[in-house]
Nucleic acid binder design. Structure first.
Lengths: 256, 256
DNA sequence: GGTAAAGGTTGACGCATCGTCAATGTCAAG
DNA sequence: CTTGACATTGACGATGCGTCAACCTTTACC
């Protein structure tokens, strides 16, 4: 029951070029190569390909797919990580669209006047937004390789810290405590410290960026938590996200 | 008031490498090149750079930015097109996230059993979803260059057709007519024809893909209209989107 | 058996956007 | 004169294949 490369391509909905590429990078080697050089694939290869395509549809990169298939440890864990990345990207797009629409609206109001003033004020007024957007972009681009560069233990530690933080925030928000209470501020500090473990951001200690950036970064980030429902869901709803933002804002003003 | 490349980079928040790149591709040529080869930038260049960076933050690609800055005709129009593309990408992510979460949930329920059955049934059960997702991915990747490859007149024609369609659908849905009525079916036919003007999709006439794909493509697409609120907004709310889906489904079953 | 049409192979370039060396030149300061 | 900061021009890398190009095999038909 051998399949030729074209047959496999057609069955799975990809192209033969893609299959040769997967073969080249070792992601899906042909199960047999005939004496004339032709590639042949068996049923196992078909199944593997289907899994690859599924993971690809879910947005994983080819190296990530390879690592999932090799360390056959719980695809669910890999997917859970990935969904977080997707959410970050999704949140970025939400802000992006809002920002573009705001720009369009502003331009339509007074094209002539705005045309210059808008760009004049760019680096001052829009600074916070810029930080937000840049953060989203950079972080997503780097987080994947960063994440996969960690060993399993570090990954677990990182996720544990996140889980602890989230449950702490949720409980604090539900208890009705004040955002500037000692307990909330303690959470805020831990949150900022946790953020520091993500490289390539103003909060990362390895960066040589001045602290002024960090404050704006935290303030911008906390606004995202409120503005985007996806984050809000992590903190027990909009009220929870608002609480997180307020606590972070107080902390940023006081300590950064 | 000349600026060196480093000064400009620092002021604008980019890197000197980026500036040299922009110079190389002609997007932002240095206003003066000294006899020693050093680049120097004046105030006009700074303003231009700020506009470039703003557009980049909004997600435009460098060729798109160049075309906006050259044909200085209404940046709003360019942005409006872009926001549509962003929305498509955003919709794709929404579906992607939902899909990944569904996968995770399914896996957590019965890991051992599902692990194989899931992938067994992949190409049958998930085919529609695959079509949806692939459409979103491909379309976004290609639509930008496709769109910018058109002359202004063609762009206008295309947008007019879309606007006409949308208002037609909205009106039809509001009138309470049946999805299989003649008027609705006429709209559906026009809708499918309009879809054919987008290259790289099963609906495009230039493609040599068999008609079986087209039917699934249309069915998958119409589901998106309902599932995603962004599209629904185009058709006068969820009810409108449902109407569009039903009408397209009837059309697909009868004609494709 | 000849010939043409499919279908196969291995390169290798291209795309978008710079990051990141490498090798080298220039200028201001000690 | 030497050192160090700042400048230059290449050129590779990364992502995931699309798209030729040049060439060989197999199949089908006359």
């Amino acid at each position: 029951m051998d399949l030729s490369i074209q047959q496999l391509a057609q069955q799975s909905g990809t192209t033969s070029r893609t299959l040769r590429h997967y073969g080249d990078i070792g992601l899906l080697p042909p199960s047999r190569i005939a004496s004339n050089g032709y590639r042949h694939y068996d049923q196992a290869a078909l199944v593997r390909l289907q899994r690859i395509l599924l993971l690809r549809e879910l947005g994983l990169g080819l190296p990530a797919i390879a690592s999932v298939l090799e360390h056959e440890t719980s695809p669910a864990a890999a997917l859970r990580t990935h969904v977080d990345l997707l959410r970050a990207e999704q949140a970025r797009l939400v802000r992006l669209i809002a920002s573009v629409e705001k720009t369009i609206a502003a331009q339509e109001k007074g094209e002539e006047i705005m045309a210059e003033k808008m760009f004049d004020g760019f680096d001052h007024t829009h600074y916070k937004e810029e930080v937000q957007q840049r953060w989203g972009k950079d972080a997503y681009a780097r987080s994947d390789s960063w994440w996969r560069g960690m060993d399993a233990a570090s990954q677990q530690t990182w996720k544990d810290r996140l889980a602890t933080l989230n449950s702490g925030w949720t409980a604090a928000a539900a208890s009705g405590m004040a955002a500037d209470s000692a307990a909330a501020q303690k959470l805020a500090r831990r949150h900022v410290e946790w953020l520091g473990s993500i490289p390539g951001t103003p909060a990362s200690t390895s960066g040589s960026t001045p602290r002024g950036n960090l404050k704006d970064y935290i303030l911008g980030l906390s606004e995202i938590y409120v503005a985007d429902e996806r984050f809000a869901a992590n903190y027990g709803g909009t009220a929870g996200a608002t609480f997180v933002r307020d606590a972070l804002a107080v902390y940023a003003e006081r300590e950064l």
